[in-house]
Structure formats: structure tokens, C-alpha cells
Simulated scan of single mutants.
Amino acid sequence: PSSKLLGQFVESYNANETLGQSNPLALDNVHLAIREEDSSSTTEVDATTLVEIASDAITIETIPDRADVYIVHGPSKTLGQINEEKRVAEEALQKEKASLVACTRFGCKNRFPPGGPYPKCVHHVSPPVFHETAKFWSCCPNKKAYDWDDFQKIEGCSTGVCTDVKEDTQKQFLGGCDLREQAAESAKLKSIDDFNKAQAAGGSDAAPVLDRLRSVMKEIGVEGELFDQVVEGMKKEGMERGVGEKELLGVVTEELGKKLKSAMKAIAVDQLRIK
């Protein structure tokens, strides 16, 4: 057991003429510990913590090869005592979590005691949208994700104070049916002149154009996910070129139109060549 290893360390230390005589160690008031990565750390820098080694633990099974072993002040504990302390600490943690309430603002992960104090939070002002494989917040439609972890990383667009009051009248999430209803309510035909004026004013109508194009492409067999991937890629390319947020959708719409036109011309050339 590790208690024998500890005894050897203490005996060797106390036998040292310099250290042992001036500051001897009491075997019954020290224990062994090793350093392990701290998985609970929230810092970007790798963090470690000292982990106590039970006095009745098997040394070869507990201490990794070439690990640094520390002698720490405090009586040694058995494996049963250490496990009991962990159990009590875990129960206390779960009890504390159970007594907290979650912020009801969209996207906020804060928890706090009922009735406050209420911490500051960064949140979204509208519910999330889960449509096919796309995930995004309805207040931030230009920030889409296709992986749950990436969706969770989308930062809120508004700041405020947490609340535990839930608005029962507001939907907690939206789907394809909700998007189609919204599109039907706001959809209206635009003339070429109206579209060009909107583009000159910042491209405010570019999003509806892309939405209509997406629907048409889907009807002829182009998956919505593929269309979204292409549009998001073109947005990223535009931002890398320094295109402003207001002009971004207009630029993407124009470039996508050129690419589709080029593809149609290529098809027409092939048709003429076949003839």
C-alpha cells in the first residue's frame, strides 16, 4: 500500500542532516498526492490539481509511471474515507444546483437563487429556429450552425439582467412551419426597379430573394442544406474581402446569380454542341 511508500519518504527526509533535523515530518500528519489535470477548470490555460492518494491504495495501480509525488500536510485517509467525502461533496453540489433557477432569457445559461440576486446576462431576444439541419436564433438569422456545439457557441445579441419570469405566450422554438407562415405573411412581389432601389439602400430585400430562390431550388431537387451551405460559404468569402454587413446579402445574391447564369450558359453550350 501507499502508506509504506509514504513511510519510506518520511524516513529518508528525516534522516537528512539539514532538512530532517531542522524541520522533521510527523508520519501521522502527512499524506501523498499527485498532480492531475483539473477538468473543472474554466480557464484556457491547462490547470492541474493535487489529488490525495489513499493510505490503503496499491501504489503500482495508483501512481502513474514517472509521476511527481508530493508529501502534503494533513493526516492520510483510507480509500473509504476519501470516497465518502466525495459522495458528501457531490450531494451538497447537487442540492445547491437543485435550489437554483435558470434564467428564462433565450440563450442565457446562468443559474441563480430564486428571487435573486439576478446576474447580468448576454442573451437572444427571439427563440431559436430548428429547420432541417440548420440551427440559428430567429433574431440572428445570418449566424447559422449545423452542429449543436457550434449552435451553443453563438453569442447573444442583447445584454441585460437575468430573470426567472417566463413568458407563456412566446414560443420556445420555431420550425419549418413557422418560417413558412412568416414568409407567407411578409412575401410580396417586387419589380426589378424596387429590387434595385432596395439594393442601393443596403440590400434589405436580398434575404427574401434568397429565401424564394431556396424554395424554388428545393422544388427542382436541390437540397436546402446544400443551398444553405453554399450561401454561408459565399457570405464568409464576402466578409473576408471586407464586405460590410449591410451589403453582404446583396453581394451574395448578385454573385450567386452570376454563378447560376454561368452554369446555365454552360448547359446551353453543351446542348448546341450536341446538336
Results as ranks from 00 to 15, higher is better:
163 T>R: 04
201 A>V: 07
156 G>W: 02
242 G>Y: 04
72 V>R: 11
152 Q>V: 14
135 K>C: 05
227 F>D: 01
67 A>V: 15
55 S>I: 14
177 C>Y: 06
19 L>E: 09
179 L>P: 00
193 D>C: 03
156 G>L: 04
57 A>S: 14
40 S>L: 07
244 G>R: 10
161 V>W: 01
46 D>L: 06
58 I>V: 14
244 G>M: 06
181 E>Y: 08
227 F>K: 03
221 G>Y: 09
122 V>C: 13
127 P>Q: 01
31 H>S: 09
43 T>E: 15
155 E>D: 13
270 D>M: 13
62 T>K: 08
12 S>D: 08
181 E>M: 12
179 L>Y: 03
176 G>R: 15
231 V>F: 06
148 W>M: 11
52 E>F: 08
273 R>D: 01
139 C>A: 03
195 F>M: 09
148 W>N: 06
68 D>H: 07
155 E>I: 15
21 Q>M: 11
195 F>D: 01
237 E>W: 02
147 D>K: 15
117 P>G: 01
149 D>F: 12
162 C>K: 00
255 E>S: 04
209 V>F: 07
13 Y>H: 13
177 C>T: 05
261 K>D: 14
43 T>C: 08
7 G>T: 12
227 F>T: 04
1 P>C: 12
235 K>S: 09
245 E>P: 05
112 F>C: 11
153 K>G: 01
188 K>L: 12
216 V>A: 14
112 F>S: 09
256 L>F: 15
234 M>W: 04
17 E>S: 06
5 L>Q: 08
23 N>F: 13
170 Q>C: 07
259 K>P: 03
246 K>Q: 13
154 I>T: 03
98 A>H: 12
6 L>A: 08
112 F>Q: 08
8 Q>F: 10
222 V>P: 00
11 E>N: 05
12 S>C: 06
33 A>I: 06
77 K>A: 05
23 N>W: 11
172 Q>R: 12
196 N>I: 04
141 P>H: 01
214 R>M: 09
22 S>G: 00
181 E>A: 12
249 L>H: 02
161 V>S: 01
144 K>L: 02
1 P>L: 10
117 P>F: 00
43 T>G: 10
108 C>G: 06
71 I>H: 03
71 I>V: 15
234 M>D: 04
42 T>P: 00
226 L>P: 00
181 E>H: 10
240 E>S: 08
98 A>D: 13
26 A>H: 14
177 C>V: 04
172 Q>D: 12
84 E>P: 10
107 G>P: 00
66 R>G: 01
243 V>Y: 02
44 E>N: 07
270 D>W: 08
147 D>W: 12
98 A>T: 02
44 E>C: 04
45 V>R: 07
271 Q>V: 13
249 L>C: 06
48 T>W: 05
241 R>A: 13
168 D>K: 05
228 D>Y: 11
86 K>F: 00
27 L>F: 12
117 P>L: 00
127 P>G: 02
138 S>F: 11
230 V>C: 13
20 G>V: 01
163 T>Q: 04
187 A>Q: 10
251 V>I: 05
99 S>P: 03
125 V>I: 08
81 Q>V: 08
11 E>S: 10
140 C>I: 10
79 L>G: 13
108 C>M: 11
